[in-house]
Amino acid sequence: MAMVAGRAGVSGQTVSRVVNGSPRVDPATRARVEAAMVELGYRPHRAARALRTGRTQTIGLVVTTLATVGNSRMLQATAEAAEERGYALLLVTAGDAVADAFDRLRDQGVDGAIVLNEASALTLAADRPEGLHLVVVDAPASSGLRVVHSDHAGGAAVATGKLLDLGHENVWHLAGPTDSFAAAERERGWREMLQARGVTPSPVVRGDWSAESGHLAASELTQATAVFSANDQMALGLVRGFAEQGRCVPDRVSVIGFDDVPDAANYRPPLTTVRQDFTALAVAAVDALVAEIEGDEVATAGVSRDGGAQGIIRTRLIERESAASA
């Protein structure tokens, strides 16, 4: 590192910041240091650095399942965001006892962990792991943990308002599981928009995020002319179920989903949906965790424990062909 510093004309601390992916290095200096590293054939030795700094440059990712599209996309996005910051990623799955997952992460010497979605609810109910930095994706701001999440309620409200604007007298809701923060927030956004427009919400029909549960839910939504589905997979099954009833989408019933999975544009019909920015969500989570690990108070200010707005990632309605006038 001293040789790299001499070649680049900077301090050893600046080289360390570049190696560790710190944002507190201006681009020109970073480029000069990286060029010197290439010229000298310098590569950081992770184990040696861990002995010196007490950090392994490894973060954990805790999930309960990768079967859902949201979790698998977050895994990909988090891995890329961690690599960009110079951190390795270690994946662990949590059963009913999330504490076991935290113990496994401690055994591997990780510097901190990101907890995803369903595992977040387990974390809130468990004892907080001592000495392990945590960032939780999808949890209430009141949890006392550092939290980031998409604007689930806002996206749901926009989707519901769109269906009302198309002339539908009411909008039914195909909700996600009761133990999901994201599902609860999407239901809240749907309900609050209806109430703001003077519409009494219809009874909620609930699925489990799968397309099969959406298909089954069609039999409970025979009176609906418009449905907001809490995710795209359930919307896909719902569209099939309605077609089997002879109620084609969008001629007889309109459907809007949530997530904007890669296949949503190729549904039949192409699905109108609320887009989650999984990349931005993962970057926010990784940046917040790395800031905690490295003690960067400036960086941690953006994702606060008191529900600060900067910890909420915006969503956007993507209009396609599955929603039409009543």
Rank of each mutant, 00 (worst) to 15 (best):
L75M: 07
N117P: 11
A157M: 03
G109I: 04
E169G: 15
R106N: 15
T65D: 13
E118R: 08
R146Q: 14
V147K: 03
D100G: 03
A88D: 14
L166V: 09
R128N: 07
E169Y: 12
N170R: 12
S120G: 11
V98L: 03
S72V: 12
A101I: 08
L90H: 02
E130Q: 13
G167Q: 06
A67P: 09
A101W: 04
G70F: 13
D96S: 15
G131E: 05
E80C: 07
E84Y: 10
R85F: 05
A156P: 00
D111S: 02
L66I: 12
L75G: 01
E169V: 12
N117L: 15
L166G: 09
A139K: 02
K162L: 14
R85A: 14
D111Q: 04
R106Y: 11
V115W: 00
R73I: 04
V171N: 01
V147H: 06
L134Y: 01
L134G: 02
A159S: 09
A88G: 15
H152N: 15
A99G: 15
T65G: 11
V147T: 12
Q76G: 13
A101V: 10
A139M: 01
A97L: 08
M74W: 06
H152T: 05
S120W: 00
N170M: 00
T78P: 03
E84Q: 15
A139Q: 03
D103H: 08
T78Q: 05
D107N: 09
L134C: 10
D103K: 07
L90S: 08
R104Q: 11
G131W: 09
A153L: 00
L145N: 06
V110R: 02
E118M: 14
G86Q: 07
S120A: 14
G154F: 02
A67Y: 12
G167S: 07
V110G: 04
G167C: 09
L132Q: 06
T93Q: 13
V158M: 12
D138V: 11
E80T: 12
R128K: 11
G95C: 12
I114K: 07
M74A: 11
Y87W: 04
V62Y: 00
D107V: 10
S143Q: 06
G154N: 01
R104P: 02
A159P: 04
T65V: 10
G112T: 07
A121M: 06
N117W: 01
